[in-house]
Write a protein that binds this DNA or RNA. Sequence first.
DNA 1: ATGAAAGCGCTAACAA
DNA 2: TTGTTAGCGCTTTCAT
Lengths: 338, 338
Amino acid sequence: MAISRPTIRDVARQAGVSHQTVSRVINGKNDVSPETRTLVETAISQMGYHPSAIARSMARGQTHTLACISPNLTDYTLASVIEGAETEARQHDYFMLSSSSVDSESFRRLVDELVGHRRVDGLIVINPYSDKRFEHIPEDFPVVFVGAQSHQKDISSVCLDDEKVAYDATSHLISLGHTNIALVTGPHEEDCSQDRTAGYRRALKEANIPFNNAKVIEGDWSASSGQNALLSFVKNGNVPTAVFAQNDRMAMGVLRAARDVNLKVPSQLAVIGVDDMPLSSYFDPPLTTMRQDMPLIGQEATRMLLDIIQKKNTDLREVKLPAQLVVRQSTSEQGGDL
Amino acid sequence: MAISRPTIRDVARQAGVSHQTVSRVINGKNDVSPETRTLVETAISQMGYHPSAIARSMARGQTHTLACISPNLTDYTLASVIEGAETEARQHDYFMLSSSSVDSESFRRLVDELVGHRRVDGLIVINPYSDKRFEHIPEDFPVVFVGAQSHQKDISSVCLDDEKVAYDATSHLISLGHTNIALVTGPHEEDCSQDRTAGYRRALKEANIPFNNAKVIEGDWSASSGQNALLSFVKNGNVPTAVFAQNDRMAMGVLRAARDVNLKVPSQLAVIGVDDMPLSSYFDPPLTTMRQDMPLIGQEATRMLLDIIQKKNTDLREVKLPAQLVVRQSTSEQGGDL
DNA sequence: ATGAAAGCGCTAACAA
DNA sequence: TTGTTAGCGCTTTCAT
């Protein structure tokens, strides 16, 4: 005979009260007399009673669980956002179900199970505009986007101020005297890439440097795509004096390629990225980058989502967070190390 | 009036059958006549019915959700394990709740809520022997360890064959002619560090190289701890010709420090790590390392956990997975690049 | 301040 | 093959 866990009724019997009174106690209601409360509380600790989260969800109609869907869980930037979101959720006694979905179809299935089956109370979607996953965003359900604003629907979002970040990064290169500045972008379909490209163009324009599409190469955020980008510039005899890579990993690929073709960084080639990954300062040379606070983005997303769920604030909000220039030696010999 | 989701009874009414028959259909039981089944199925799709996961959990007494607790979600190795575990869980229609807990106390609280409140059916604990979290492992509950075997209890585990990995790494350095081999370890309290240290010692012993404790420095897996380790050897005038760092990040720190003190790698200093992070091949020089398949570890852990939950195989199992030497230029000029 | 009754949406056991 | 009756362990009325 398996020893089954005590229920609220077992506790009630033991304390000599109704199960309802026990419910009042575990929910901290104030209409219970002090004596009864003590009675119940001792019974609870004696029996090692824990309320069942499932039964609660059942009765209350909500799960106290959120989901966070991301293209993957391993990229440092994404994982940092998720960790920030999860920590904030726990702070509010919510749980976070993080899931990776590689493409639109797996995203659809996931949302279907999560939302359709009412397994969660709300959804955080990271990079909603990579592939076509945004098409499967549920209607009338609490959702917050991370990494891109909603194009049509009224969905709140939090992301980096990508246009400004790129503007600042490019301006940094310009301020160092560069005019031949190449750009390595993320996938064009992602808003984030587009906005960063827009910021790059604005900086060039303000400095009266003509935009040249031949200086732009599309990458996929990976180091190897950054490496290939620089190699292709070299192969075409179209070597820039500076490269703005739209994330650190691609920038690291550029640094690697520069080494392979004997371009001295930063004297012959300046390189700047975005993110400030933990290893960015360990590269040779240490990478200049735009530091963003990824856990804060996740935290903010969770807060907004909980506000919507708890109807505290259901206004459409589109938060854009800043990033900060960290100058290291990939753009300037005088750059700091850390 | 809010349009509430249809329940099993709504579907039953619409199809003109009992709710139980609907239950049979959605659960794919075979004792339903084809006609009735079609009837029910059309009603289901007409009404856009989805069964409620919560109600199911309630009635079945299990949540179809697992939890994975890790010191953090951002370290590449941990995130990779989690992603592997999560993907495998989804394959079996389970969900994965991943949570980070920084210390023993937050771990205890987390387990309490997760297991005590029966929010999940099973638990994967990554690095159970970092801090004292193993003390709070629940009894009589499906648990699988990742990264260390259980010391006392009968808990199944999956980890890298750390002793052998370290033996192989050290042997590689010895085979290159090194006899002055320093070791940078993870925290001594972690099994993983201890086992890797044991493998290092065994390799030395077999090569008749005396073990010297002054050549061992404890790090904390971070790049900066690797950097400090080498700097401290240099400061003490005790510079080795080779370093085995127990993970890649510390190895990257060693490389960085070598650069700073003008030690040429690999001619004056050979460096090997463990993990094969995606960026390891982008370093200067590309890092020789022991490649481990982290998603596989997570996958294996989930499989074992599900076997236990579903009572398919509750035998104690302690799986040790192999790693593979990847020679790059941090140990040998002839090393490959990728 | 407390208790009784009903119900959340499903599954399981039994009956027909 | 199908329907009926009971729960699963809570919360939420509504009485008392």
